[in-house]
Design a protein around this nucleic acid. Structure first.
Lengths: 229, 229
DNA sequence: CACTCTTGGTGTAGACTGGACACCATGTCA
DNA sequence: TGACATGGTGTCCAGTCTACACCAAGAGTG
C-alpha cells in the first residue's frame, strides 16, 4: 500500500454508455460483472482512471479493454459523485456516452473474457451501482442532442437508406415523422450525398443509399449553418 | 499522512464559474490566490472535495467559504482532467457554473480574507491553472443554454424592466434584437407578470417592472411547453 | 406469369412563425 | 418650455412547417 496522502481521496472511475441502433431499436452495450460488489449484475463498461492518462483516455482504454471498441464517437456526459453510490468506499465516476455503428460490432458477446451484450433501451435489466441513473441521463442527453447536432449518423452504417435515418429520429424524438417532410428537410440541408447503390436482399423495392458528408458539414458550420430537425 | 491506498489517486476538486450581470455587462467572480502555485494570480473559486459530501455540496460549500454566496443557481458544467493541469500533482476538477443576481452581492470585495472581484467577461486577467479554458467552456454553455431555458432570469433582480432582459439576451446571443419582436415573443410566453412598480431614479420615462413566474413555467413545462428565444 | 404485398419516392396548399420596420408617449433636466 | 432619452405599441411580407395521397418498383406466391 505505497500511496499515502495527507487527506483522504475518493477513487476516480469512468463509465461509458455505449449506444447502438439496430432493426429499429436503440440499444445499449452492457457487461456482466464478475467481481464482487454486484457480481453477476449487468453494468456499464468502465474502470479506474490511471494517473498518467486523461479522463477521456481512460474512457477509451476501458472501452477497448472491456468491449473491444475503438475509434468511436465519445463525449463526456456528467460526473456522478453522491457519497454512497459505491458500497465499498467513496467513488466518483465521470460518465461518457459513445455512439457506435452496430454493423461493425455485431454479436461479439463472448469475444473477451467478460460477457458483453446489447440490450434494447426499454428493456434493461437491473443494473449495478447507480448505472440506471447514468443511463437515464445519457438517454436524455442523446434525445436532446440529436435535434441540433448530426450525431445520428454515428449510429448508422456508412451507407444507409433515408427510411432508416427517419426511423432513428422517430425513436430518439419519440414521435412519428412525415416521410415527405422528413426527406425534404434532411436532403435540403445538403449534408447527404446520394450513392449509386441500393439496399440488397429486401423483399420489396430497394431504397437508394445515402452517405453523410461530414466534410461538407464542417464547411457549412463555419459559415454559420446550424443543423436542426 | 494517514491515508494510504493500493493504487495512486488523483486529487479531486471543484471550480465554480460565477456569472453576474450588471449595467449591461456580463461579469465573472474571481478570487486572488494567496497560496503557492499561481500565488497572486486570479482564479475561479473552488477547492477540494471532502469524502462525506457530494460534489454539488462541495461546490456550494466552497462558494460559501470563498465568496459568501449561498442559495444560488448552480449546475455542473464539465470535468477537466488533463494530466498536467496542476503543476503540483494530478488533480481532476469538476467545474460548475453559477448564476447570481448581482444586486444582492454588490461590492463584497474584501468581506472575506480572500480578495474577490467581479470582472467583465471580455476583460479577464491571466488566470491560474486551466481556468481560462474552464471559463471559456462555461461561457459557451451559458450562451447556448440561454436560448432554450429561462436561466437569464437568475442573473436579473427579482423585478426588472424588459429593456434589461433584452439587453441581457443581446449580450449572451451576441446579436442585437428588435425591441417590438422581443417584447411580443417574451410576453407571449406568459412567463412574466407585470408588477405595479416602475423604475426609480432614471433620467427619462420610467419603465414598468416585470417578474419571472417560475411557478407558471413549471406548470407549462409539464404540459410540453418549451422556452425558446 | 399475374397478382399481391410492401416499401420507395414525389408536390402542393394553407397555417403559422419570424423578422423588418416608425412613430407617439412620458418623464427628466437644463 | 423645449430638448433629450427611453418606453411602449401593430402590421405586413416572406419563409417555414405541416398535413396529406398516389403511383412505382421489385419480391414473393400460387
Amino acid at each position: 500500500m505505497p500511496f499515502t496522502y495527507e487527506y483522504p481521496r475518493p477513487a476516480l472511475t469512468v463509465d461509458c454508455v455505449v449506444f447502438g441502433f439496430d432493426e429499429g431499436d436503440l440499444k445499449v452495450l452492457l457487461i456482466e460483472r464478475d467481481l464482487k460488489p454486484f457480481a453477476g449484475r449487468w453494468a456499464l463498461p468502465g474502470g479506474f482512471v490511471n494517473l498518467d492518462e486523461t479522463i477521456d483516455t481512460a474512457a477509451r482504454r476501458e472501452l477497448a479493454e472491456e468491449t473491444g471498441l475503438t475509434e468511436i464517437y465519445l463525449e463526456q456526459l456528467y460526473t456522478f459523485g453522491t457519497v454512497d453510490r459505491d458500497p465499498r468506499e467513496r467513488v466518483v465516476s465521470v460518465a461518457y456516452y459513445a455512439l457506435v455503428k452496430l454493423e461493425d460490432h455485431r454479436p461479439r458477446a463472448a469475444t473477451d473474457a467478460r460477457k458483453a451484450a446489447w440490450f434494447n433501451v426499454d428493456d434493461i435489466p437491473s443494473l449495478a451501482f447507480d448505472h440506471a441513473e447514468i443511463l437515464d441521463t445519457a438517454l436524455r442527453r442523446l434525445k436532446g442532442k440529436v435535434r441540433y447536432e448530426p450525431i445520428g449518423f454515428e449510429l448508422l452504417p456508412e451507407k444507409f437508406p433515408l427510411s432508416q435515418l427517419q426511423h432513428l429520429y422517430e425513436v430518439c424524438l419519440e414521435e412519428p415523422l412525415d416521410k415527405r417532410n422528413f426527406r425534404k428537410k434532411i436532403l435540403g440541408m445538403g449534408l447527404l450525398t446520394e450513392t449509386d447503390e441500393v439496399q440488397q436482399d429486401v423483399a420489396h423495392r430497394a431504397a437508394r443509399l445515402y452517405r453523410f458528408d461530414s466534410r461538407r458539414y464542417q464547411q457549412l458550420k463555419k459559415r454559420g449553418f446550424s443543423f436542426w430537425l
